[in-house]
Design a binder for these strands. Structure first.
Lengths: 205, 205
DNA sequence: ATGTAAATTTACTAATCGGTATACTTTCGA
DNA sequence: TCGAAAGTATACCGATTAGTAAATTTACAT
């Protein structure tokens, strides 16, 4: 077999992801992706049968990468829950400050394809967000927070809202406001949770 | 002048808004908009010089309509702040349950055009969101909530997050979670605000 | 070396896109 | 009634789109 097909495939997925995340789906052409991946459009179609299939594969690959990244991110913040929340939102603010930031690739693509409920990309995005929210809930539970699933969802809502509003306004103040709200929600949980004041303790559950 | 140009213009704006909100910007063609507005593409270009200009005009018109709608919505909920929050999120849930719901037209378009920071549509969307957030803050302040601006922003974050996540998951449970979080944030404010327990009172500020 | 399957290229559709040249209607003022 | 401006329609343009036919190159097994 000439050239390594697997490496080419990876190169395509990488190039396509950059394009899709930056400029969405419709406005990126297969010619552009091919050019960015340094091959011809016909070769692109050798590896992926259609643009939709390519998008699906891109999101599938990115899903696993993002899960892994979130894992190491969580490990790095083994301290208090407050520190974890601060880390989450400050990382979000830094991320959003990047010059050509265009939001979460998953959210962006789902919203662009919002009128196509059967599109495979939407299924993957849905699974992706669920997994992340679930892992975040597990982290909170391990840190001893009572009602972790509920709190995780609420903080997740704040985070998604911050992404949307930072895209609209280009103002990272929304990440800070979200962080403040998240910590107040956490403290409310601690005060009322049957498990007690677990937020600041170092112990696991 | 033959036919009423103003009526035609309005018909175009209406048809274009439906299309843009439902399917975004790129994937809607001028031919489709013309057809939906029951005229030819050439006539469309007589009224609007370009697709970008049409989008701008559509958002401009929709901005005023949405502001007015929010006004009456707020008037209808003159009672307690809790009731106002419940009303906000339950209205959101009902809205999101509509069969071909595709999120806020403004947010959707901003996200689709996230890589074009100079696009006029983004300026309008930005002004739109600011106005709504500001009016919501005013309502809260009038109801006697301390730190109304901060709380308004936090609830706004929850609301935008709920829109995103409901689009991803098609599950209105996110609106309910957002409502719960919003009310907990409100109660936290009441407990800690210097102005005191204003949330349940009927008095103004 | 050489056959062969895998991988890549050049060159091409047919359709659709935003936008336009130009001629035709409609309506009102004179 | 009739000229002229306002508004609409027919028919087109060049560019771009996703996708394809067919020939060509590469690498490895024999």
């Amino acid at each position: 077999m000439p050239r390594d097909a697997n490496k080419t495939r990876k190169r395509i997925l990488e190039a396509a992801y950059v394009q899709f995340r930056r400029r969405g789906y419709s406005r990126v052409s297969m010619d552009e992706i091919a050019s960015a991946a340094r091959l011809t459009k016909r070769s692109l179609y050798y590896h992926f049968v259609s643009k939709d299939a390519l998008l699906t594969a891109v999101l599938e690959a990115q899903h696993h990468l993002a899960i892994a990244a979130f894992q190491t991110f969580g490990d790095r913040l083994a301290g208090s829950v407050e520190a974890m929340i601060d880390g989450l939102f400050s990382e979000l603010a830094v991320w959003a400050d990047k010059p050509r930031w265009a939001g979460s690739g998953f959210t962006r693509l789902v919203i662009e394809l919002a009128d196509l409920p059967g599109h495979p990309a939407r299924l993957i995005a849905r699974r992706h967000k669920s997994t992340l929210e679930g892992q975040f809930a597990d982290r909170l539970a391990k840190a001893g927070v009572g009602g972790a699933r509920e709190l995780a969802r609420e903080i997740w809502l704040l985070s998604e809202g911050a992404i949307s509003l930072m895209l609209v306004h280009g103002d990272r103040a929304y990440a800070e406001a979200a962080a403040r709200a998240a910590k107040r929600l956490l403290n409310g949980k601690i005060a009322s949770a049957p498990g007690g004041r677990a937020g600041r303790s170092r112990r696991g559950p």
